[in-house]
Amino acid sequence: MSFAGANSAEPPDSFGEVVEAHWTAVYRLLYSLTGDPHDTDDLTQETFLRALKRFETFKKGTNLRAWLLRIGTNAFFDVKRKQQTLKIGPLTEDVKSEEKSAETLLDLAEQGKLVRRAVQDLTELTRLVFHLRVTEELSFKEVAEIAGVTEVAARQHMHQARAKLLKRLGESSA
C-alpha cells in the first residue's frame, strides 16, 4: 500500500508494514528467551517468514501482534525441542544499548543487569509469561493463548516470577 495518495481506510497490504510495526516486539521477546543476539536474529527472521507463509490464516478482528508473538514463541520452542544449535545462556550483558545510554543511566543499567540475571534464572515459560505481561501489557488471557497454557496457569507463572524476582533482588541488594 502506498501511504502517499491513499485516502481511504484500506488495509495495509504490504507485509513490510507489519514487519516495521512489530519487529522490535518479536525481537525483544525472543531475546528475553534466548539471551543471544545471533540466535534472536535468526529466530525473529524465522518468525516473520512463518508469518508471511501463513498470513492468510490470520483471523481478521484479532490481535496481530499477539499472533506474531505466538508464532515467535512456537519457533523458539520448536528449535529448542529439536536441540539445534541454539545456545540458551544468560542474557548478554555487554550488548550495546540501542535506546539508552550507559553514561546517563548508570544506576538503571546496574539495576537492569541484576534484573536480567534474576529473570534468566526463571524457567522459560515463567520468563515468557512475565515478559508478555510486563513488556507487552497483554492480558492474562492473551498471554495464556500465546504460551499455550490456561489463564489460571499464566497467573501462577506470574506469581512465581514476581515472588522469585523480588526475593532474588532483595538478596542481591542486601
Binding site: 531475546y31 540501542e98 537492569g112 510486563v134
Partner: peptide, 27 residues
Amino acid sequence: LRELEDQWREQSLPSGAEAKSRFLQKQ
C-alpha cells in the same frame, strides 16, 4: 513490584534493526 516491572521494561535491549533490514531486503 512496580519498580521491578519498570526496570524490566526500561532495560537496554537491542532492537534487531540490522536483522530487520536484512529480512526486508530478502523479502
